[in-house]
Structures are given as structure tokens and as C-alpha cells.
Design a protein around this nucleic acid. Sequence first.
DNA 1: GTTGAGCGTT
Length: 256
Amino acid sequence: MSHFGRSGPPDITDTYSLLILNITFRTTADDLFPLFDKYGKVVDIFIPKDRRTGDSRGFAFVRYKYADEAQKAVDRLDGRVVDGREITVQFAKYGPNAERIHKGRISESVPRSKYRSRSRSPHRRHRDDYYRDKDYRRRSRSRSYDRYERDRYRGKERDYRPRSRSHSASPDYSKGRGRERYDDDRRSNSRSMSASPARRSPSPRKSLSPRKASPSRGGSADRRSRDWQSPSPRSVSPRGRPADSRSPSRNSDVDE
DNA sequence: GTTGAGCGTT
């Protein structure tokens, strides 16, 4: 039936991209295909989905083969009620390569990074922050999976705070003030027991807290760990803190 | 099960 998005972008050199907004969160490409295909030749349909849940984001991209058909679809399907919601069909403003489009047509005549302006968006919200400008330059201090775990929600849980990192090996709370003293104290201790660079073990407390041999539920334990380390960070024994400061230059973005 | 400005993938 519809193999859109299964093999990536087939050919975007002579296709016109249309942006479909205001669609329902359960509308799929299969539902839009027969609708847009009736007005022209649809070469590809893609609907961005969430990385965590996998749900649709509420908009889709329909690529036509010819501009006249795309224009007709825009004039015909723009304002049409789909699945009980009025959709908005218009020419895509940006291309898949984050480049400008010529009246909906994707232009591959992009020289180089000369047109790379991060000010493409006149105004961006939290949604843009999720994908940023697809630069993904935040990999300087974390892996690729890290941004998927600590990414902010689309707006549902704006109160979400990375406080569940008690056992996630993210001790970014101990740095910022007077860490040199603890660092020195812990460092001598660390050197005494092991001079190996294997101090990145995310479970150092295991040897210190053998009481729990079955950490099946780390929820309650997490809450308590955060409790006694939040108000008095200095009361924490310098025994279970392997990571001293992985990236001291990026601590201003989380600890604010 | 919810939400609603916006611009995209192997």
C-alpha cells in the first residue's frame, strides 16, 4: 500500500513539498495518501513522529511531482476537514536538508554552508528546542542516547526535572562550588583503592550498600538518595562519587 | 485516554 518513510527520501530533486498542519494526532500517511493522490501524483508522504512515544506530531509532508498539482491540492485540501479536524495545507517553507525551498520545490542548488543561518526561524517555541536545528552539537558531553533520555517534553511536563539521575550516573550536582576540596579528598581516597581509570562505574554504591541485593525497584530508593543529598551535598560521603567532573564547561546549562 | 504552534526521515 504505502511504503512512505520506509526507505527514506526517494527523490527530492524534482518534487514539491507540501506542509500539512493542524491534522489530528492519529492521522497517518495512509489516510492522507488517497486524499492528496486524488489531486495529483504524490511521490512521497512523510509524517514526523516522536522519538520517545512514536506518535505523530500533528503535521505531515506531502510531496508532489508537479507544482500545478501541488498548488491544486493546496487550494483544494487547504481547510478541508480531516478526521474531524480542519487541516492546513501549504507549501513547505524548509526542505529536508534544512534549506530553503523555491515556492515549494526543493532546490538542491545549495552551494555550501554559506546559507547556513540559524536564524531561519523567526520565532521558535519549545517544539523547536526539541530538534533544535538538527545540529546536534550537544554531543560534546553526552552520548547520543543521552539527549533522548533527558530531553524536555513537548509541553506536557514542563515541570519535568532531571532528578531521576540519582543512579543514572550523572553527578553534575557536586560541581560548581568548592568541588576542589571534595575532589582532592575523594581523589586521594580513589587513588588508594584503585588507580585504574575505571572510575566511571555507575554503580559504586553497590559495595557500600550491600543491604539491597535485589534492586528490583529503584524508585523509592532513588527518592531517598536524592533527599539526603539535595539539602546537604557536603554531608554526602566522598565514597560513591566516581565522576568528579566530566565536563565542567557545560555545567551552566543544567545547574542553574 | 490527554495536547495544538509549527517545517521532515534511512
